[in-house]
């Protein structure tokens, strides 16, 4: 187990280098960041050359990359072209996004598994049909449509919540955006749970549990659900990273100044340090979440052994 964790952590190094380099190169390929910095108004060539020189943009790509990596390992993710420390940006943006993701993830887990269990246990009944139709609708509509519609209905028309998220991103304000962010994943979780519950409810060990005279609720939670959740947890783990990345759209809609907001700004202004910095952290979070899921997998299913 310990060796497995160490090996997995070591595997992260090439993945980390690979992803950062790809992002670095892609942002570089977008075009000249100095021009982007000035927007519509073209800078004078002399000024542009000076900025380029001071930011080291005249060096070959790999030199720039090495330079950047050296910075990362000394805790310096660089500065944006406007002079802000990327680390400071990260520190202000990530907590907000983490909070949003946590809200979304909770909604996804509770509602997704709950609805899936309900519909899996009552297969073919009206509850099941309702859940199936609703989830299909949610999956087929783009997130930004759901987002704007719900924002309009709840935030503007009925005034139940704030239409946008206020300063400091209080939890109350994050429930609606969290729901929007979770919506598609929630639908997938519900469907996946339904399938595995329906499948496992015919399993021999569930019949054994009933034959033992266990109350229905215990049969469902201890025997049926416990086994059915194994594939669901796998999905949830990989989805955690996707949620943080997917927050980009939701954050735009609800004006949340989180990772998505800054990433969007960074790409718009071709700001390499910002983009690479934010994506790097996303990658690390994603890798760690995956590792966590794989470890959890062994806890849930004792037949799995790590070698």
């Amino acid at each position: 187990m310990g060796r497995y964790v160490i090996r997995r952590l070591l595997q992260m190094i090439p993945v980390f280098i690979g992803t950062t380099f790809i992002i670095f190169a892609m942002v570089h390929a977008l075009g000249d960041p100095v021009n982007a910095l000035f927007g519509d108004k073209a800078p004078s060539p002399a000024v542009a050359a000076q900025i380029r020189d001071s930011l080291g943009l005249n060096d070959p790509l790999w030199v720039q990359y090495l330079h950047y990596m050296k910075g990362i390992f000394t805790g310096d993710l660089g500065t944006t072209f406007s002079g802000q420390q990327v680390t400071a940006l990260l520190a202000s943006a990530y907590p907000t996004t983490l909070k949003l993701t946590a809200v979304a993830f909770t909604i996804e887990v509770v509602l997704g598994i709950g609805l899936g269990l309900l519909s899996g246990l009552r297969r073919g009944k009206s509850v099941d049909t309702l859940v199936m139709v609703m989830t299909l609708i949610v999956i087929s509509i783009p997130v930004f449509v759901i987002g704007y519609v719900l924002q309009y209905l709840f935030g503007v028309k009925w005034g139940i919540t704030n239409a946008t998220v206020g300063y400091g991103a209080p939890i109350g304000d994050l429930i609606l955006p969290g729901f929007v962010l979770a919506s598609v994943s929630l639908a997938y979780v519900a469907r996946l749970t339904r399938t595995t519950v329906a499948e496992n409810s015919k399993a021999d060990y569930v019949r054994t549990a009933t034959a033992k005279g266990l109350p229905r609720w215990r049969v469902v939670t201890h025997h049926l659900l416990r086994n059915s959740l194994i594939p669901v947890i796998t999905f949830l783990g990989t989805d955690l990273g996707a949620l943080m990345g997917g927050a980009l759209v939701t954050e735009r809609i609800f004006n949340i100044q989180g990772v998505g907001y800054w990433l969007y700004q960074g790409i718009l202004r071709q700001n390499t340090p910002t983009v690479v910095g934010f994506v790097t952290i996303l990658v690390v979070v994603y890798l760690l979440a995956n590792l966590l899921v794989d470890l959890l997998y062994a806890v849930l299913d004792p037949r799995i052994r790590y070698a």
Binding site: A203, D204, Y205, T208, A211, H222, H223, R226, N227, D301
Partner: peptide, 17 residues
């Protein structure tokens, strides 16, 4: 009244001791 099933591998829950 209790029951003994045919295939003990599938009749026992794989995730509990």
């Amino acid at each position: 009244m209790a029951m003994v099933f045919q295939d003990a591998l599938s009749s026992l829950n794989p995730v509990h001791t």
